[in-house]
Amino acid sequence: MHHPRDDEAGGTPGRRARGELESNVLAALWSADGPLTARQVLERLPGGLAYTTVLTILSRLYDKGMLVRHREGRGYAYEPARDEASHTAQRMKSLLEGGSDREAVLARFVSGLSEADEQLLHQLLSGHDGPHSAGHVDDGK
């Protein structure tokens, strides 16, 4: 439909694209085991971003209080601020457990799996050339 790479790679991404970049950077920091420098964040973000863009996003997220940082070499290493997120976690948990009916409005990324589903998934993901899935799988490359 559109070419996201183009507006991301440019120096001045649009407002929506900027929001998306913030999400991607935040997600990258959360998935890491420890603090990351801007360079390390850049390495973890697919899609050839400019180093300065990452720096800008990191400092914006820091200003919002979503990250904490400490000096590392000539720059900073960033880490997500955990206290708010754990607070949210408790809220979310109680809300989700409170009424399963509320699931109705949540667009979940994945639904639950049955045992057969699990086996099938393992087959689909690992054994692309497995005997049972050979007919369905196309490499696409």
Partner: peptide, 19 residues
Amino acid sequence: PGDSELAVVDDDTPQAFAL
């Protein structure tokens, strides 16, 4: 918390959804 698109919940149970 925050005004960003993504809200991360500090929880080991893997879950993801759009609200």
